[in-house]
Design a protein around this nucleic acid. Structure first.
Lengths: 102, 102
DNA sequence: TAGGCTAATATCGCTTAGCGATATCAGGAT
DNA sequence: ATCCTGATATCGCTAAGCGATATTAGCCTA
């Protein structure tokens, strides 16, 4: 895998957990949102990732039809929120460590 | 893979790039340092990772003997530093996004 | 100087993630 | 009914991650 992806796939998942903790989010919406943050994530990665997160109880889903299109909306579970908390903490820790001070 | 690892392996690599940009670091040293930061990373992951980073020109290595033991020291290359810069930026971006404000 | 000891690094074998490309699927329009 | 479009799913391959185990280099002891 290319390093750039490799370094940031974790970031992407944290973004997902965060957004789904704030509101219901669909795959497409996430796709655009992530692009906005500089992450190009293909459907072949995104959708399996969402399902995996759901399978592992970090997300729950509910499908429905909107504007003539089937959509699946995700929300972060309690377990996911706990993971998100940990991620916040680790991210701060990382920044504190690697920050340049000069 | 367990989510906890999954989310943070990128963090680990960023740590590595950072430390090796500050000073020469060996596998063992990194192992202890990472543990200090809460990352339990096994030799079966760490050493292949270092070699991979070297192979992809993010690190350079130089082996030598110290206190009776063979060690391999790594330093971050220009390319690695560039990746590190990007990582700093993305990490800030992540924090700004997922931070709780209440 | 052969043998064994220890610490550092490397490899093996397996499972599973990531991903580009392609397929499927539901609803709306004609 | 058929076609179109946009959202989600699957396939097939490559390679990452990892626990367990092996290897390696130098030191020590007698």
């Amino acid at each position: 895998m290319k390093l750039q992806r490799d370094l940031f796939l974790g970031f992407v998942k944290i973004h997902i957990l965060y957004h789904a903790s704030q509101e219901e989010v669909s795959g497409v919406w996430l796709s655009t949102e992530l692009k906005r943050h500089g992450y190009a994530i293909s459907p072949g990665t995104l959708y399996p990732t969402l399902r995996k997160l759901e399978k592992d109880s970090y997300l729950t889903s509910s499908g429905r039809v909107e504007q003539g299109h089937r959509r699946i909306y995700y929300r972060t579970t309690a377990r996911g929120k706990k993971a998100l908390e940990k991620a916040r903490h680790q991210a701060h820790e990382l920044i504190d460590e690697i920050e340049e001070w000069e």
